[in-house]
Design a protein around this nucleic acid. Structure first.
Lengths: 222, 222
DNA sequence: CCGGATCCTCGGTGATACTG
DNA sequence: CAGTATCACCGAGGATCCGG
């Protein structure tokens, strides 16, 4: 026992799931690992405010539960990394769905909201409309940072490729991406205000926000 | 503040969701309410081991979060009941998905496992294959208890109707339903051992376990 | 009986310091 | 870098009590 919260003990899939990933910080750790293996300190950075002892305890709990696994990076770095097991990876759809639900009651991005573009991968995956046809290659930029987004065959990915050649480049802060996707701002007003600058195909850029758009779960459930 | 666990504070849909329903017992309370409004004491019975103060605190938290609402039953009972708001109802799909994930690492039902048939509604909803065509009417029985199951137009429901007329009646304990659906036991062996008794159409009865069958999420994710 | 409120204890959580 | 050690605290768990 490493300090995990007490178990529910019911013979129920939901109770079992909560035994495994219902602990505080657990699901946020899984979220961080959705894009690939991370090191301990990288996890700490992505989880602002997590106490280091709690992080260590949760990583052990998740490992014991078969959700993540510790492994050594291939040589020569040979650092410790944490990654999802296939079972942990199977949580992705559920997590995106839960994130979408929570986002419904999340207001506009706060004033000083500034996060790195990489943190957009989770909400973009969640909002992605799988019905999308054809292939689309975008690059989001903000200063030195950039995030490549490829939509193809009904899937999204975020290739980390220096020689990536997008159809359209969108220069904008992370918060603006979310504000437009959530409908708090429009594509046109963002361009007009100068907070969104386009390079390449403007139609493609506009298409981005048709592909990534927050659905209304509450209405859809009726 | 009523004692809710500390909030994460990130501008992230998942973190927001966990702020709302990430507290201990919260999601199990929502699960209980999926089938309709319940009273305080009914909730207590469905949540074995929940401390009454925690239940009260969580109900208030969930109400403050807009997930559930207190209301008075129509006359003449005029009792306090708790029910999901539309926003809370929108959690259903996600919850079923999380339950399915957890159920993957849940073993065989324990020896002495005996629960009322009504607790099957959650796992049955979760395992339901939406591609099902036509209409099917089942009744599960166990002693005095019974559960009506109607599959129609790609949806399931559990009508509480005394004059219900099923196509097939399956007399069996709740644990056996889950054991067969999870593949720990087969329909035939259950019939042969006498733990499953059929009335009405045997083919219909067999069909039940094609409609309600646990998928393998881990394999499906590849 | 229903719907909690109160009290007390224990352990998980969070913050900081420290170490191989 | 990747954790462990320590400690204060407060939420969780359990029992009991109370007003309608």
């Amino acid at each position: 026992m490493t300090g995990m919260t007490r178990e529910y003990g019911q013979y129920c899939g939901l109770a079992r799931a909560l035994d495994l990933v219902g602990g505080r910080w657990s699901l946020l750790i899984v979220r961080e690992l959705l894009d690939g293996p991370l090191r301990y300190t990288e996890l700490e950075q992505g989880l602002p405010g997590v106490p280091t002892n709690i992080l260590a305890a949760r990583l052990r709990d998740l490992e014991d539960g078969g959700v993540i696994e510790r492994s050594l990076q291939p040589r020569p770095s040979s650092a410790v990394v944490y990654q999802l097991t296939p079972y942990g990876k199977a949580l992705e759809k559920t997590l995106l769905s839960l994130g979408l639900w929570g986002a419904q009651s999340l207001g506009e991005p706060p004033e000083g909201f500034a996060s790195d573009l990489h943190s957009l991968t989770f909400p973009l995956r969640a909002m992605f409309q799988e019905r999308t046809e054809g292939e689309h290659r975008f690059q989001i930029r903000r200063g030195e940072e950039s995030l490549n987004v490829v939509v193809s065959h009904g899937t999204v990915c975020f290739p980390n490729d220096p020689s990536f050649e997008p159809d359209a480049i969108l220069e904008m802060p992370a918060g603006l991406v979310l504000a437009i996707a959530k409908g708090y701002e429009t594509f046109d007003s963002a361009v007009e205000s100068g907070n969104l600058r386009i390079e390449g195909s403007p139609e493609k850029a506009r298409r981005f926000f048709e592909i990534f758009k927050m659905p209304d779960l509450v209405e859809a459930a009726r």
